[in-house]
Design a binder for these strands. Structure first.
Length: 662
RNA sequence: GCGCCCAUAGCUCAGCUGGAUAGAGCAACGGACUUCUAAUCCGUAGGUCGGAGGUUCGAAUCCUCCUGGGCGUGCCA
């Protein structure tokens, strides 16, 4: 049920009778900000009165007179400067709920025009461990995929794996120089990860040594700047508060820079120390002074078809995929396709040739570039050395998807820092046969550390994703297995049930916390808050669900029983909390539509939390089993049953599970 | 230098195409368990929506400028 859409039609009809083109104002309908104003409000009278040059309240009255909404609303009221306030009738609410009973879609219709939407998300580089930075794309992409599918679109998910990059040069180098074939093949996933980490550490060591001097300089500069700012502050005219304020700000800024420079330098120094203080590592570092360039050479050899490296790549790739699939299993995320960069490798030369023949690309400084009028820098599709780039692969991917999937829309769930890349890509795609496809960069913000600084993806010291999931589940287990809480349950909870709950609650907490932020904003990653199991978290919603299930269990009723009871006893509202809950329930479709409109799952998160909140209030105020009459009990059982199902379905669309008790 | 993004309560964050008195959670303080699970609920306190102009009947939201921060910026992905 989508009340605003329904209302919009009614208003359009009424407005057309008032002035030509009046229906353009019909969309100005929204839920009221304050329940005392009713359920929905229409704001069209104010702007319309300006157009007509008359009093807004009079215009509102004319609209109300022409409006036909008796079947849905009580008498509309005009308030303030010209708001039209509308309150749904109880009859309408009750009959809408009745329709939701037994309907797996909870009265959410499938969209009228089905689109084919490709969602490109997650896309990790295989061969290196997944870390916290991979959460956002994976979780947002998965939630969008489930939600768009639910409302009736044809969704195709594709994990564009980074399976052809430098990380394989790292593994190949590591295998050739440090790998024991027997040990590696005995336990390939773990051993390859170890090799990756070792070689990466040695590379980082080299880089840190190379950078140390300039980092030291940055610290010195920042120190000087702080001293200078301090002097300025001291000499600032005490009579002039503005000058003093400015000097203070300058000092604060310089201090921040110093802290940052010190941090960067310390990180580099730590990398160096870690190797220097380990005799084995420092020996290896001494033996491989050019490891960074050597790794690039191994990568280049792979790309040029060197038989040995290609054979190693083919041998290692499945194990690398096993590694990431383990994480996807745990996260309950899957893909229709996993077409990585390597898949498009054979098509890249053709893409460049086609761009050149169409006059889109041209040679510049030895590279093949597409120059775009709206950008200073070109999009480079082939390097001087002949190698292809990210942009080339993306164009090949676009071409392939157009031919094989015929999408109407492609969503790229990728870090916002790549927005310029996508702007260029989409601009080129417009001249490359993809004018008809809606291309969207579903960008998202950076995950920050608890200190508020961006988590750098290449620092190598990031917390691994698997470890993080384990921590969350462990934390959830501690709470679930709290003896005080466990004592409540009858029959008692077996160990296996406790573990299942911890898994659902722990993983859900991480996903839900990520999805609760608007996708474009940065957020601070705080494991403590996510699994605190208090406040606006997944646990709150899951707990609400568990309470609904317990009531149904105690009443020994399932939804089909409720349908019969409704037919027999009828339904009515006798407490405001019942009506408030009903109003939330019928808005499910509205919430889902807003998720699609802005590609923003946080709107569904908000909706679920609000619904759970309203349910809690209902739960406090409206006892089901002790209800005074059959009709009241039937009404409440219906609300409980629908709420439980709605929370379950809603969480499911976010990729978060529920448990029957917790 | 140029481009993009951000600034909302002590902290972490919402705020949908401009709408009525700017919200939530956490932290603080005060209440509620003989009650279908207190992982809960109720209440109190806390904000010049970074600053200054402008558009409008009406601005956290749109425009301009300023300040502060982040990110990106020709051969990584």
């Amino acid at each position: 049920m989508h009340v605003p859409n329904l209302l919009q039609q009614r208003f359009a009809e009424a407005l057309l009778g008032i002035t030509e083109g009046g229906d353009a104002f019909a969309s100005m309908i929204r839920p009221t900000s304050d329940p005392k104003h009713g359920d929905y409000q229409a704001n069209c009278a104010m702007p319309l009165s300006k157009k007509l040059g008359s009093n807004p309240r009079e215009v509102a009255q004319r609209i109300v007179d022409a409006l036909k909404v008796d079947d849905l609303f009580e008498n509309p009221e005009i308030a303030g400067p010209g708001f039209i306030n509308l309150k749904l009738t109880d009859d309408f609410l009750l009959s809408t709920l009745r329709n939701m009973l037994g309907d797996v879609r909870l009265s959410v219709p499938r969209v009228e025009s089905e689109q084919t939407i490709i969602i490109d998300f997650s896309s990790p580089n295989v061969a290196k461990p997944m870390h916290v930075g991979h959460i956002r794309s994976t979780v947002i992409g998965d939630a969008l995929s489930r939600t768009l599918q639910f409302i009736g679109h044809r969704v195709i998910t594709d994990n564009h794996l980074g399976d052809w990059g430098t990380q394989f040069g790292i593994i190949i180098y590591g295998y050739k120089h440090f790998g024991d074939p027997e040990v590696v093949m005995a336990n390939p996933v773990a051993e390859l990860t170890k090799l990756y980490r070792l070689v990466n550490q040695l590379i980082e060591y080299r880089k840190a040594i190379g950078a140390l001097e300039s980092l030291q300089q940055a610290v010195t500069d920042a120190t000087t700047a702080v001293a200078k700012s301090q002097a300025e502050l001291e000499s600032a005219d005490a009579e002039d508060p503005q000058a003093k304020k400015k000097a203070k700000k300058g000092l604060a800024s310089a201090e921040r820079r110093l802290v940052s420079a010190n941090g960067t330098q310390a990180a580099a120094q730590a990398k160096i120390d870690a190797v220097d203080q380990d005799s084995k590592l420092s020996q290896l570092a001494g033996e491989h002074p050019k490891i960074d360039t050597a790794v690039l050479e191994e990568t280049a050899k792979l790309h040029h078809g060197d038989p040995e490296n290609v054979a190693l790549w083919e041998r290692f790739l499945p194990y690398c995929k096993d590694e990431i699939n383990r994480v996807y299993d745990r996260l309950d995320v899957d893909f229709d396709h996993t077409l990585g960069e390597s898949f498009y490798q054979p098509m890249l030369a053709d893409v460049v040739a086609k761009l050149e023949s169409q006059g889109l690309a041209s040679e510049s400084d030895g590279a093949i570039c597409v120059f775009l009028p709206e950008f200073d820098a070109p999009m480079i599709v082939r390097k001087q050395d002949g190698a292809f780039l990210y942009a080339t692969t993306d164009l090949a991917t676009l071409q392939y998807r157009r031919e094989h999937f015929e999408p109407t829309e492609i969503l790229y769930v990728v870090d916002t820092r790549q927005s310029e890349h996508f702007e260029k890509l989409f601009a080129v795609a417009n001249h490359f046969g993809l004018e008809q496809v809606k291309l969207v960069h579903v960008n998202f913000g950076t995950v920050l550390g608890e200190d508020g600084r961006p988590m750098k993806t290449r620092s190598g010291t990031l917390i691994g994703l698997e470890g993080l999931l384990n921590d969350a589940v462990d934390r959830a287990k501690q709470v679930v297995c709290n003896p005080e809480r466990l004592a409540v349950f009858d029959p008692p909870m077996e160990e296996s049930e406790q573990e299942a709950i911890a898994e659902t609650v722990g993983i859900g907490a991480i996903k839900f916390a990520d999805l609760s932020h608007h996708r474009t904003s940065d957020y601070r990653f705080s494991l403590n808050k996510m699994v605190s199991l208090e406040g606006r978290t997944s646990t709150y919603v899951q707990y609400s669900f568990a309470r609904t299930q317990k009531i149904l269990e105690n009443a020994q009723k399932c939804e089909s029983d409720v349908i019969e009871m409704v037919a027999e006893h009828g339904i009515e509202f006798t407490h405001p909390a019942e009506r408030d809950l009903a109003l939330m329930l019928i808005r499910f479709e509205e919430a889902l539509q807003t998720v699609h409109k802005d590609y923003a799952p946080n709107l569904l998160v908000d909706y679920l939390l609000d619904t759970a909140k309203v349910y809690s209030k209902f739960n406090e105020n409206c006892h089901v089993l002790k209800a005074e009459t059959e009709t009241i009990q039937t009404t409440r059982l219906m609300l409980v049953s629908l709420t439980g199902r709605m929370l379950q379905v809603g969480l499911g669309l976010l990729g978060v599970g529920v448990v029957p008790r917790m």
